[in-house]
Write a protein that binds this DNA or RNA. Structure first.
Length: 498
RNA sequence: GGCGACGUGGCCAAGUGGCAAGGCAGGGGCCUGCAAAGCCCUUAUCCCCGGUUCGAAUCCGGGCGUCGCCUCCA
């Protein structure tokens, strides 16, 4: 397995610290608002990475923090006249709900910054003792000059940065690039005790403290979006290595940014869409398919047009799984498919898995992996198309394997292929009235009513009474049923509306 | 200005030295009462120029264009 490491700017063989185990840390959100679809992309990318590592047999410990103390949260609370804690709690819950709605698996641990204050204070004390940090009027700053390797992650040179005009000048800092480890609390702000007085942690220190606390030193993978490389991850790296004296992280993975009209989606640009709003129109599997068709490190342009395309692509997969199930479910046994044709499909199954694995082994190339799945879709569809009427037991067994493989591999990508047919228990009672009207149905069961309607339609079709046949189909369509005439007879699919 | 990434068919996108995956859309055909689903066929001088090589989308140099980071940001 090879991964692209931001630190070395190369793909490297992935060798975890402890054989068979992977420690993974991904920066979570600052909870002052609902997350937008760009945030979601990053979390989705690492969800897939986590799922794939698990599929590959690694025992993955996945930690994602929640930043629940921060200037933005305080500002939001002030605007709304409530406490920072209330704001943080509301959006933490909303964040977790949104993750679930996108089928993103829960991390092993989801630590909150406010619950790790003592660990942060301890790390800051260590940094001061080692001469990497200094306290001024209740604030503590990290001394960038004390860490000669500062800039190695983002490929920057301190002196060139100093020359730039954009670095904030603060009289109390020894160097303009020094950043806050601890901020003294202003009245009304959340605060915790520390050796430097009441205050709160700076942004970067939480990840350093919590990752070490849970994952230990020199853990395997630290992830986030590429806009975190500088300054956030550069600062984390500097703090942790200065404090611990060992490498902080083995592999730094950074995802590409979501864009809108070729511009970064961000809250400051105002061009963002909330994940929860997108989920109102598009399902989680469709959003996932849309995003995973592009490599996680590449920029990805967001548009509803692209989501509509992904919807069509997803339906192709749904239809395939549905068709495989349909053909397998048929009771009659045909003449049997020629052995070489069946064997060819079996070989295609093996190739699909090996190609999927090879693509994912190569820096989590989900686009290539999806290509492998779609190639299998074509092979399976061709097989169905050619031999649908000939199937017998051995053939159905291969179809079952094909279905299981597709569901399994899509599952590694977190793309759920739903049971297309809702259970009969959910069928609307209105079909009873429809059956009574169009087919003289006298019973009370929706399932029986549908059978009666299908029967009536078949009779009408046999009599070439197309108007009557179509009235049944249209009537059922109005209730959410789709009728498809297959070589083996009509099939009904129910998908609740809305 | 500094650092970095990218430019592949109508749209999107994988591919980093050996006949250019895949998705969407379009066209033609098959199946079909119609429809749905599906199958078959069909569309690429890989941004431009120069170089290395038996061979380049892929490596090197130059150019043009786009984006990101350098300030909070997933």
């Amino acid at each position: 397995m090879r991964v692209f490491n931001t630190l070395t700017r190369r793909k490297e063989d992935f060798v975890p610290r402890d054989a068979g185990r992977v420690s993974l840390y991904v920066c979570g959100p600052t909870v002052y608002n609902h997350i937008h679809i760009g945030n979601a992309r990053t979390f989705l990318s690492f969800d897939v990475i986590r799922r794939y590592l698990t599929y590959r047999g690694f025992e993955v410990t996945f930690v994602q923090n929640v930043t629940d103390v921060d200037d933005k949260i305080i500002n939001k609370a002030n605007e709304e006249g409530r406490s920072a804690q209330e704001v943080a709690e509301e959006y933490t819950a909303a964040f977790i709900d949104a993750m679930h709605a996108l089928d993103i698996a829960d991390p092993t641990e989801r630590p909150k910054a406010t619950e790790a204050i003592p660990e942060m204070v301890a790390m800051i004390e260590t940094l001061i003792e080692k001469g990497h940090a200094y306290a001024v009027d209740g604030d503590v700053y990290f001394s960038v000059r004390s860490f000669p390797e500062y800039g190695k992650l983002s490929g920057r040179d301190i002196d060139e940065m100093n020359a730039g005009a954009r670095v904030e000048v603060d009289e109390r800092k020894q160097d303009p690039l020094d950043f806050a480890l601890w901020k003294s609390a202003k009245p009304g702000e959340p605060h915790w005790p520390s050796p430097w007085g009441e205050g709160r942690p700076g942004w970067h220190i939480e990840c350093s403290a919590m990752s070490e606390d849970i994952l230990g030193r020199t853990f395997d993978i630290h992830g986030g979006a590429s806009d975190l490389i500088f300054p956030h991850h550069e600062n984390e790296l500097a703090q942790s290595e200065a404090a611990l004296g060992v490498p902080f992280v083995r592999y730094w993975l950074h995802g590409g940014l979501l864009q809108v009209n070729a511009e970064k989606m961000s809250k400051s640009l105002g061009n963002f869409m909330l994940l929860r709003d997108v989920l109102g129109t598009y399902s989680a599997p469709v959003i996932r398919l849309f995003m995973l068709q592009t490599h996680y490190r590449s920029p990805l342009d967001f548009s509803t047009h692209r989501l509509d395309e992904a919807t069509a692509a997803y339906e192709r997969l749904e239809n395939l799984v549905r068709n495989l199930r349909w053909v397998r479910s048929l009771a009659v046994c045909g003449a049997g498919v020629p052995g070489d044709a069946r064997q060819a499909l079996e070989i295609a199954l093996e190739r699909t898995r090996s190609k999927f694995d090879a693509e994912m082994d190569d820096d989590f190339n989900t686009a290539g992996a999806l290509g492998a799945i779609f190639e299998l879709a074509k092979a399976a569809n061709s097989f169905l198309s050619e031999y649908q009427s000939d199937m017998c037991e051995d053939d159905r067994q291969v179809l079952l394997h094909a279905e299981e493989l597709i569901v399994e591999l899509l599952g590694v990508l977190g793309i759920e292929v739903e049971e297309a047919d809702a259970s009969e228990a959910q069928w609307p009672r209105e079909v009873v009235a429809l059956a009574t009207e169009l087919a003289g149905f006298e019973g009370d069961e929706p399932a029986e009513a549908v059978d009666k309607l299908l029967e009536a339609r078949q009779i009408a079709r046999a009599e070439k009474d197309w108007a009557r046949a179509d009235a049944v189909r249209d009537g059922l369509a109005g209730l959410g049923f789709t009728i498809e005439d297959t070589a083996q007879g009509p099939r009904v699919i129910y998908e609740p509306k809305g």
